[in-house]
């Protein structure tokens, strides 16, 4: 359905925007390494079915490979700043202070409590869904502290938020048309969309309105 296609495209666009911004400006100002590392972990634990005989579609396969590869690539790209621009890297590390072990532990507990079947793949799948729902928190925390985000364009956040928002409509659509409902994905998805709303609100308040006052 269209909600899902545009949701996925919006997710693709967000990654493209982030990569383009970092590569073209050679700046990582305002980007949370922890959030990007968590996203890489999310895809690594969710798409393990790539290595089983479970086949959904070519679309599904290609998207999974892309999300896995791009999320790992972003982490590598950010790590390169460690030697390429140590001052910028150090500044990021100093600001990126959210304690992610709470998120990892919480997601693991949620994965163990709520899953479709008690198998390693299913528990890791559930873990990845819960982790994705909170992975933006280090970024949110960093932004609310500094109020600066040159590399994080409004487009990146908008595209990510739109992706989650469209997925909710996708689930409503599938519930109505296929009587299909994935309770874990829906509950975690609503949590995640709420996180993004907050992120967008802070971004608007701190970055857009904050910078507007400094314009020449």
């Amino acid at each position: 359905n269209l909600f899902r296609i545009f949701g996925d495209l919006s997710h693709l666009a967000s990654i493209g925007i982030l990569l383009h911004t970092v590569r073209s400006t050679q700046s990582i100002d305002g980007i949370s390494f922890k959030t990007q590392a968590l996203y890489a972990l999310v895809f690594m634990t969710r798409y393990l079915d790539l290595f089983t005989w479970h086949w959904v579609s070519l679309y599904n396969f290609l998207m999974k490979v892309f999300f896995l590869a791009s999320s790992v690539y972003i982490v590598v790209l950010l790590q390169q700043f460690r030697t390429k621009n140590p001052i910028a890297y150090k500044e990021m590390v100093l600001q990126d202070t959210f304690k992610i072990h709470f998120l990892l532990l919480g997601s693991l507990v949620a994965g163990l409590c709520f899953h479709h079947r008690f198998t390693l793949l299913e528990i890791l799948w559930s873990f990845s869904v819960w982790l994705e729902s909170v992975a933006i928190l280090p970024q949110l925390f960093m932004l609310s502290k500094s109020g600066r985000a040159q590399s994080l364009t409004v487009h990146y956040i908008f595209a990510l938020g739109l992706y989650r928002f469209l997925y909710i409509f996708n689930w409503i659509w599938r519930y109505v048309s296929e009587a299909r409902v994935d309770k874990i994905a829906v509950v975690a998805g609503i949590v995640q969309t709420a996180m993004y709303s907050d992120f967008f609100y802070i971004y608007y308040k701190k970055v857009i309105r904050g910078n507007a006052g400094n314009l020449p």
């Binding site: 479709h116 409902v181 994935d182």
Partner: peptide, 10 residues
């Protein structure tokens, strides 16, 4: 009847 699905989403 509502069914719990396979993971066919991303």
């Amino acid at each position: 009847y509502v069914h719990e699905p396979e993971h066919d989403e991303l």
